[in-house]
C-alpha cells in the first residue's frame, strides 16, 4: 500500500498564556485512496493537528512526510506551493471569496498554480462542480448560494488541482443530516473512484463509522 501522508512523533506546545502540551507524540499513516476520520472530544487538539498536517502551521516538533518526501523544515515558499498543488482543505465555515462567482472561486487555486490555460481551468472547474451537482450555480455570486451549496463549492475548490489528499475540519458540522449525507457520499465516491485520500475531522459518529478508519484522540494523544 502506498503511503500518502505520514506523521512521525509530532509534538506541539502552546507557550501562551501558559505552557501547554497540545499534541503528544502523534504517529500515523494515511494510504492512497484511504478515507480516514478523526474523532475526539472538543479541545483534544484535532484542529491543531490538521493545521500542522496542512502545512499552514510550522511550529511543531517531529516529522511530516507527504508522498514519502520530508516536508518538515521546507521554506515557506515551498510549503505554499505544496498547499496549492497537493493539499485540498475544506473548512467548517465555508470560506469563499464573496466578490467572486462560484466558478471563479473554484478556479482560483488553479489560476494561482498556473499550469493550465484559463480555458482548461474553466473546463476543469465546471467538471468539479458537476461532480458535486452544483454546476447550475457556476455563475452565481458566492454570497448568494446556501450554506450546503457553499460547502460543496469549497469541496470543488479543494479538488481543482487534483490534490493528493483532502483535509476537512468538520466540513459537515454546519449542515443538516441530508446535506451531511450528501457530502459524505461525495467523499466516498472520490475515495473509491478516484483513489483520493481523505482525512476528515468530525463529531458525527454516523459519518465516522462509514469511513475506512477512525483515528480517536484524547488529550492530545491518539488512543486508537
Amino acid at each position: 500500500m502506498e503511503t500518502v501522508l505520514e506523521a512521525k512523533n509530532i509534538n506541539k506546545y502552546f507557550k501562551k498564556p501558559v505552557l501547554f502540551h497540545v499534541l503528544k507524540d502523534i504517529n500515523f499513516k494515511i494510504n492512497k485512496g484511504e478515507f480516514v476520520s478523526i474523532m475526539g472530544k472538543s479541545g483534544c487538539g484535532k484542529s491543531t493537528l490538521l493545521y500542522i498536517l496542512s502545512t499552514m502551521d510550522t511550529e511543531y516538533e517531529g516529522e511530516l512526510n507527504l508522498n514519502n518526501d520530508l516536508i518538515t523544515g521546507e521554506s515557506r515558499q515551498k510549503l505554499t506551493f505544496i498547499r496549492n498543488k497537493h493539499i485540498g482543505f475544506v473548512f467548517q465555515f465555508h470560506y469563499l471569496l464573496s466578490e467572486f462567482t462560484v466558478l471563479e472561486n473554484v478556479m482560483l487555486p488553479a489560476k494561482k498554480l498556473g499550469e493550465k490555460s484559463i480555458k482548461e481551468i474553466e473546463k476543469d472547474a465546471l467538471e468539479k462542480l458537476k461532480i458535486l451537482n452544483i454546476e447550475h450555480l457556476a455563475h452565481k455570486r458566492a454570497s448568494q448560494v446556501s450554506g450546503g451549496e457553499k460547502q460543496r463549492v469549497a469541496i470543488a475548490r479543494a479538488l481543482i488541482n487534483n490534490p493528493l489528499i483532502i483535509m476537512g475540519d468538520e466540513p459537515t458540522g454546519n449542515l443538516d443530516s441530508h446535506n451531511a449525507d450528501n457530502v459524505f457520499n461525495i467523499f466516498k465516491k472520490l475515495s473509491v473512484e478516484d483513489n483520493l485520500s481523505l482525512l476528515i475531522v468530525t463529531h458525527d459518529e454516523d459519518f465516522a463509522n462509514r469511513t475506512d478508519r477512525i483515528i480517536t484522540m484524547e488529550d492530545g494523544r491518539i488512543i486508537s
Binding site: 496542512s54 515557506r76 505554499t80 496549492n84 498543488k85 470560506y95 482560483l108 487555486p109 494561482k112 498554480l113
Partner: peptide
C-alpha cells in the same frame, strides 16, 4: 482578514 486567510490556505503566498 478571512479572505486573506483563505487565499493563504489555498496556496497564495504572503508576497501574493
Amino acid at each position: 482578514m478571512n479572505d486573506i486567510a483563505i487565499l493563504k490556505a489555498i496556496g497564495f503566498s504572503g508576497n501574493d
